[in-house]
Design a protein around this nucleic acid. Structure first.
Lengths: 366, 366
DNA sequence: GTCGCTGTTGGTAGCGCTGTCAACGCTCCT
DNA sequence: AGGAGCGTTGACAGCGCTACCAACAGCGAC
């Protein structure tokens, strides 16, 4: 019955409309704003669409409406755990609604970011999620000129393009160092890799905390532009020890490096935390089960991604958030690797048993 | 000069054509098949496009041509390291050409996969990358009916929908167990989490190897449907030890579990490999710098993603590969955790020094 | 000179959907 | 009764691009 289909056998809106006994435009409205239809027509169109298995043609919709339902996401890395948690949040938030995610990898290059931004903007995305606050001047100008909502994620800064969600890496680093001071440590080293803007701000926070305590020395800082890895953590720590054998603590710019430091201590038979305390950053899942357990700064990465996408979608649909800048904070999670009252809090043998009853941890699961 | 633009100020093909002094269709051809134009027109259109900063409208192109330049990718997890390596390969391969990646997360559910597949197919993707070979019957039927190239990744099996690239998890597991046998181990346990089809096949390989050696016992196997984590590795190992205190080796279905086992051994003061040997799976970066270093089965994940996308694009453009099924193999990387001649091969203190000269490892960098 | 061929170019007619605006019927008010 | 106002519906005209087919020039062969 009714209406010839498109060549490829696909069902068009016109077929649905015909079956439902309404005009195509009414059927179209059903998918965009069902409330505008009378109950009778609404149900008629709905069942017609279901019966025919109608799926809207997004290209036609985008062409006719002069906008897309694509959310562009620009992140610096696909493999860094930190971003995969954020991404998972973004994808989860985009599920069940009309928006689809278009992901691109800037590889920590703001020039690449600029190029991708130009590409994205040319297709008129519904919204944009970009990482950080250190865009090129050109990128910044494009973002300001873009006529779609934009969320900057991962950190917060003074001058949002539009919306912003993250936390202060500077403050988080200060808090980590303050924790080490509280535990009685003084010669606190810093190891950092990749040195992207956020790691740089962690370094700045470390430097400020050390200077405030009149403890800063340049030789306590070891950094490299090399991408981070566990192995690199061991190597950087080795350098640090060579520069300052009297070291009594290390603040690692991320948890991979911290794990590398832990293993290097093991190789050198350096006692943790008695000889050297360790603090990491991000609180990846393994930190809680390392031996000794590793102190870290917990950040809300999944929530950050999820909230960013949710805020963005709300803004796309005209409901702008009352507070466009959201600080998700952080928390220093104290564990054995930096605790002066160690081995009391956690028993030496793990809380064993019934693996089948275990559930995933909130951070870094899956 | 010439031609009114679209409302939003965008330049259309018509403007480019006018400036170049050719018809719109000729300008259109320039972007799709430049060789069809005479040299003179080709350069005229090229410079006109550059001068106006023309960017094609993909929605219009998709609508008119009845196809998209989108490659759909279905993977089970966004956070599992294994898939992020594959993804990086896919994104890298898609860079610099006309295709864009549309990613979706099935969350290890083949029902979710089926749903997403239906969604993807409705938009007529240029090609599809799907994970594994265990689709629902319905999904399988949709894939076979799809009129676009398809690559199945992560494993190889007898009955490809179209193209296929991966390796045999069964053989890899057998090789891992064989390695443990060679090192003189007999009571080899298995710990596995999530138990997706690929982990299941690793278990199958383990079981077969054990049965061949007449060493199989059900109580040596501990698995859970819970998502994998380092902490879970410790818990599963604890279970395993309770069932079989005489255990002398563990084959872990992935490296996170192996790291958890390592830490649990440390807590229990179990010597590795003297009392218990450990073998992991995937050879993530940290395996090489753990203490002791951990044996693992190396797989070519980045290459898998990159090759899959490259093959797919070739096929989309009509150049089908001569061999549609590619076995990328695997390699057991023997390290201290399973070596009977241990502590000779690798010194107790790491190959220290100049961190700045270090480069990332080929696997799992960034 | 005519034919057929190849290489190059252009005209026409949509692709499937939605923006805009007009029109309809109904209720409620004066 | 007449009109304002609302909720609901439909006609029309594209969105920017490409598939299809026709046309044309230039060439060599007969």
């Amino acid at each position: 019955m009714g209406g010839q289909r498109t060549k490829s056998g696909k069902i068009r809106l016109a077929e649905v409309a015909e079956l439902a006994g309404v005009s195509p435009i009414t059927a179209s409205r059903f998918f965009r704003n069902p409330e505008a239809l009378s109950i009778a027509k609404r149900t008629r169109v709905e069942s017609a669409a279901k019966e025919l298995g109608y799926v809207p043609n997004l290209a036609a919709r985008a062409l006719a409406s002069q906008r897309t339902e694509v959310i562009g996401v620009l992140i610096p890395s696909l493999t860094n755990n930190v971003f995969s948690d954020v991404l998972r949040g973004i994808y989860d938030a985009s599920e069940g609604n009309r928006y689809s995610i278009q992901l691109s990898n800037t590889r920590y290059s703001i020039l690449q970011e600029e190029k991708l931004l130009r590409l994205f903007l040319a297709q008129k995305p519904a919204g944009l999620i970009v990482t950080g606050i250190d865009q090129t001047a050109e990128s910044r100008a494009m973002l300001e000129a873009a006529d779609c909502p934009i969320v900057q994620i991962m950190e917060i800064g003074p001058d949002p393009v539009d919306m912003m969600i993250g936390f202060s890496h500077y403050d988080a680093a200060r808090a980590a160092v303050a924790h080490l001071f509280e535990q009685g440590h003084r010669k606190v080293g810093f190891v950092g890799a990749r040195m992207d803007p956020r790691v740089q701000r962690r370094l700045d926070g470390y430097v400020a905390a050390m200077k405030d305590a009149a403890l800063f020395e340049q030789r306590l800082v070891v950094t490299t532009a090399t991408p981070t890895s566990v192995t690199l953590g061991g190597a950087l720590f080795t350098d640090l020890l060579a520069r300052e054998p009297g070291l009594d603590a290390v603040f690692c710019a991320n948890d991979d490096l911290a794990l590398g430091v832990l293993f290097e201590c093991r190789r050198r038979e350096i006692a943790i935390p008695d000889q050297v305390a360790i603090v990491g950053f991000n609180d990846l899942e393994f930190m809680a089960s390392a031996v000794p357990t590793l102190t870290s700064v917990r950040t809300n990465r999944y929530e950050m991604g999820k909230t960013a996408a949710t805020m963005l979608i709300e803004a796309i649909e005209g409901r702008r958030p009352e507070r466009p800048v959201l600080d998700l904070g952080f928390k220093v999670i104290e564990r054995q690797s930096s605790s002066s009252r160690h081995s009391e809090s956690t028993p030496a043998v793990s809380r064993a048993g019934a693996a089948n009853k275990m559930v995933a941890l909130p951070t870094g699961h899956d």
